[in-house]
């Protein structure tokens, strides 16, 4: 694989040409906000928080799915970008029903972190207050659709790592919702092995372990990277 040199935020660096901007930036200590991206599973490109400017291109590019190339000049921070990111995070808050103080993931939530990183102090878009449900039929876990941001991390981890493909998104657009099997209660799903990977992968308080009180759910999806590395080693 060829190594290319590029510039991110005025910093010269090099990366392999099969690497994306996000990872090359990270290796060099530059953090780009992400929500749908998770190491160890495939890229999705849906949250649009990792959008960056590339010199010579009128369009913005999602860093998680854009490969680096020779001579590329990337800018990951600007007033315009942070404005866009703020609005997108606001959209996520208004799309569901989030009440952090009573949430199991309070203080351990990627969405919440994102809003403080982006210094969002109030939501100017109107709340949509959708009618959503909580599925507590599983023995070990709970799915609270009110907090789901449809990032599909659970769908991908369950399909690609566990091989069960219990989750999928039904419907489309603003009507999209996460479902298990043929829209059955999670606890009745024949495909779920109760491995818990989706819970660890979920960035918010949408998927959590039973018996956790507010603020008690702490997630750690790093194991996915080991699994992915192990898989790569074997093949």
């Amino acid at each position: 694989m060829r190594v290319v040199t590029l510039k991110i935020n005025d910093q010269e660096m090099s990366g392999r040409e099969d690497e994306d901007i996000l990872h090359v930036a990270r290796e060099h200590g530059i953090e780009i906000p992400t929500l749908c991206q998770l190491d160890g599973i495939s890229e999705w490109g849906g949250c649009r928080l990792c959008l960056v400017e590339i010199e010579g291109s009128a369009k913005l590019s999602a860093a998680c799915v854009t490969k680096v190339s020779e001579g590329m000049v990337v800018n990951t921070e600007s007033e315009r970008l942070s404005g866009y990111r703020k609005t997108i995070v606001e959209m996520l808050f208004t799309e569901g029903n989030h009440i952090c103080s009573v949430c199991v993931s309070n203080n351990n939530c990627e969405l919440q972190d994102m809003s403080s990183d982006l210094k969002i102090d109030h939501i100017s878009l109107p709340y949509r207050y959708p009618a959503r449900t909580v599925d507590a039929s599983h023995d070990l876990f709970i799915f609270d659709a009110n907090r789901c941001i449809l990032c599909t991390r659970c769908v991908r981890v369950c399909d690609q790592v566990e091989g069960a493909h219990t989750w999928d998104i039904a419907g489309r657009g603003i009507q999209s919702q996460l479902i298990s099997d043929l829209h059955q209660p999670w606890g009745e799903s024949d495909s779920c092995t109760s491995c818990g990977k989706c819970v660890e992968a979920c960035p918010t308080g949408a998927l959590f372990e039973k018996g956790k009180a507010a603020g008690e759910m702490v997630k750690d999806p790093k194991f996915l990277v080991y699994l992915a590395d192990m898989k790569a080693e074997k093949s």
């Binding site: 849906g46 959209m91 489309r172 603003i174």
Partner: peptide, 21 residues
């Protein structure tokens, strides 16, 4: 557009719904 949005990306999924409202 809101009804035809596939829902994959946030700005189109949520943004078109807000704009319609």
């Amino acid at each position: 557009c809101a009804a035809e949005s596939c829902g994959k990306c946030v700005p189109c999924r949520v943004g078109t719904a807000h704009m319609h409202d």
